[in-house]
Design a protein around this nucleic acid. Structure first.
Length: 297
DNA sequence: GTCCAGGGTATAT
DNA sequence: ATATACCATGGA
């Protein structure tokens, strides 16, 4: 039905296929399904589950509501979610000008033009994902996230498929670490996740509160004061959730591997070298990182 | 068996 | 400030 469809307009230098390619990187991703060129997921709006799909459209992104209707609030909230998810508010012109003159970025930017830093709009989901991803392979992190979501999240059935609402921080706040240990999440990470769930559920840690601090360094300082959040996790959250175009997860092994490849090194760069490489990218280090990651696929 | 994977904490110098 | 042990699982 025509009323179940809305268009989200996209800016110049946006490529749906490039974002789709990033979203498609794991078969174990549990927060959305991809079939062909269409991404479908669930989202909670005012306590009610909405299921929607996104596909490319000449006018932007076509959003089809599978469950729930785009009338009133749901349509606006889903549109806002997508703009947040795909960083549609950003003008990439300065980044592309910078990258064209940079030997390390040029190739990635030419090959993936239109790619956005794909976000994780929910703060709790961001920290769970980042903490799970510390020190283990991305593929194993996906397995752990899937177990976490399918054990503690809320299923939404639509068209014979199951979609998931990410576990509620308030519920996780009350868990015993052993409940997470059973999923093969380490004891430490289980404690970190439960502590952060409590902070979020109590309103002590909020996305808007962090964004109000404005300055990346200030936000990093606030975040790294929390147990389980070090510089890598803080910058990862700045990049994926708080939309800092300049956050730089300098300890990231994937970034090291990408730099090794792009710079033709015979070993991975050290941490100081990784910082030094990024000097010319100041203002856009998150975008530089995201594009460099694409070299590894 | 060893090493490494989208790190972080605790402790010792 | 910098170095090391430890966390803990799974794939190469």
């Amino acid at each position: 039905m025509e009323t179940d469809r809305v268009i989200v307009h996209t800016p110049p230098d946006f490529s749906f296929p490039e974002c789709l390619a990033y979203l498609s990187r794991s078969a174990d991703e549990c927060m959305f399904h991809i079939e062909g060129e269409t991404v479908t997921r669930a989202l909670e709006v005012d306590g009610q589950p909405v299921v929607f799909s996104m596909s490319e459209d000449p006018d932007g992104i076509s959003v089809e509501f599978k469950q729930g209707r785009p009338d009133g609030k749901a349509g606006e909230e889903v549109s806002a979610f997508i703009r947040d998810w795909l960083d549609l508010g950003r003008d990439l012109t300065p980044f592309y000008e910078l990258a064209e003159g940079d030997p390390l970025l040029r190739q990635a930017v030419r090959e993936h033009r239109g790619l956005r830093v794909v976000g994780i709009p929910d703060l709790f989901e961001t920290f769970v994902w980042a903490i799970l991803g510390q020190q283990i392979t991305v593929s194993f992190a996906y397995v752990l996230k899937k177990r976490f979501v399918e054990t503690f999240g809320t299923p939404v059935e639509s068209d014979g498929q199951t979609f998931w609402i990410f576990p509620d921080a308030g519920a996780v706040a009350g868990f015993d670490p052993d409940a997470l240990r059973e999923l093969k999440i380490t004891g430490r990470k289980s404690e970190y996740i439960i502590d952060i769930a409590r902070m979020i559920a109590d309103g002590e840690l909020t996305k808007t509160g962090l964004l109000e601090l404005k300055d990346d360094k200030l936000i990093e300082k606030e975040l790294t004061a929390i147990r389980g959040i070090g510089p890598w996790t803080a910058n990862y959250a700045l990049m994926r959730c708080l939309h800092s175009p300049d956050a730089y997860p300098a300890a990231d092994v994937g970034l090291h591997n990408a730099l090794k490849l792009a710079a033709g090194l015979d070993r991975k760069p050290t941490l100081p070298e990784t910082e030094a490489f990024a000097e010319p990218w100041k203002g856009w280090r998150a975008y530089a990182t995201f594009y460099l990651w694409r070299l590894l696929h």
